[in-house]
């Protein structure tokens, strides 16, 4: 990916970005490129440097080294307010002393736009996020979802070239988050912005991303289109971030209770979509440990020796209860080797 990013000089690019806090390295050399119209999702656990990366791109952190580019313009030494890069914080950070119109129109007034044009463009931006007519509302009377939309409208009204979204949906409840995720994705694509979206939620990442970058310990662990990344996460850390659960440790001969799964010790991933449950005579003999539902889909946890494996199943497996004996069928391409 990095190579193609350097060739292609369009959009937002970050080269060998490093940031340290009081001598401790937080970002250890990040390379990224996002084109206009593309949504890149940064996925990672809290504290891995996701937010710091966004702040660095926005010019809010002192870089140790590295450069930030837009097309052929070097933004690295440009102060924040001249970068034309929008940033939406997780808890919105609305200006409490101004109403909705005052918040959304802030960038326009700073830029010296005339009052009628501010009014007009504020209305436009509010329309875009589905809050037409909210101009006069005080920001402390808004619900969580409304605040989030106002924050988004405020950033969009500034007409940025790129927009950075720092877990903007993180403080909302699940139902609202899922709805807004879809809306946000549609809006970003319509506006043709280069967007970097930070989250720790893999479902949100898959819903939004054109490409996913998994961040771990200040470095990019894995980057690529969602299906590719999901099918082959590369590292244990990336696999966990992407929502994989069946990570198996192998012994020196590449074996575990499921048999020989690799050559030598290490960790392998069993892709959930390549696992099947059959009758007790098929595949490897297994015992049902529990059954549950994930996002409405039934999931069965089975034990093979000391190894537990989660298997998503079709609706048609009635009557499975704890202790039932089943057969676990592992498709040949289900085993993906991972690096530690």
């Amino acid at each position: 990916m990095t190579a193609s990013a350097v060739d292609d000089r369009r959009g937002l690019r970050v080269e060998d970005l490093r940031v340290a806090f009081e001598g401790k390295a937080v970002l250890k050399g990040i390379d990224l490129a996002v084109e206009p119209g593309e949504v890149l999702v940064l996925l990672g656990p809290s504290g891995c440097g996701k937010s710091t990366l966004l702040r660095a791109v926005a010019g809010l952190e002192q870089l140790t080294t590295g450069r930030v580019w837009w097309d052929d313009d070097d933004l690295t030494d440009l102060p924040t307010h001249l970068r034309q890069v929008g940033l939406v914080f997780q808890d919105h950070v609305l200006f409490g002393h101004r109403d909705v119109a005052g918040n959304v129109g802030f960038a326009l007034r700073v830029a010296g736009a005339s009052a009628p044009s501010v009014t007009h463009r504020v209305a436009e931006a509010l329309e875009m996020v589905g809050l037409a007519g909210f101009e006069g509302r005080r920001v402390d009377t808004l619900s969580g979802g409304e605040s989030q939309r106002v924050a988004l409208a405020r950033s969009l009204a500034a007409a940025p070239r790129a927009i950075l979204l720092d877990e903007p949906l993180g403080s909302l409840d699940r139902v609202l988050r899922e709805r807004l995720t879809d809306e946000l994705g549609a809006l970003l694509r319509r506006l043709d912005l280069a967007a970097v979206h930070v989250t720790h939620d893999h479902d949100e990442a898959f819903a939004l991303a054109d490409r996913i970058a998994v961040l771990g310990d200040g470095r990019i662990d894995r980057i690529g289109v969602p299906d590719e990344v999901w099918a082959d996460p590369g590292s244990v850390h990336a696999a966990r971030c992407l929502g994989h659960e069946n990570l198996l440790a192998l012994d020196v001969r590449g074996c575990c209770a499921l048999g020989q799964l690799g050559a030598g010790s290490g960790t392998v991933l069993l892709r959930a979509d390549r696992l099947f449950l059959g009758g007790a005579t098929e595949g490897t003999a297994a015992v049902v440990v529990s059954t549950t539902r994930r996002s409405g889909r039934p999931v069965v946890t089975v034990a093979v020796g000391d190894v537990e494996v989660r298997v998503p199943v079709e609706e048609a497996m009635p009557g499975l209860v704890m202790g039932d004996e089943v057969g676990l069928v592992v498709a040949e391409d289900a085993v993906i080797p991972l690096t530690d």
Partner: peptide, 9 residues
């Protein structure tokens, strides 16, 4: 910081 990102000096 939000103000700065929105273009304020």
């Amino acid at each position: 910081e939000q103000a700065r990102v929105l273009g304020a000096t």
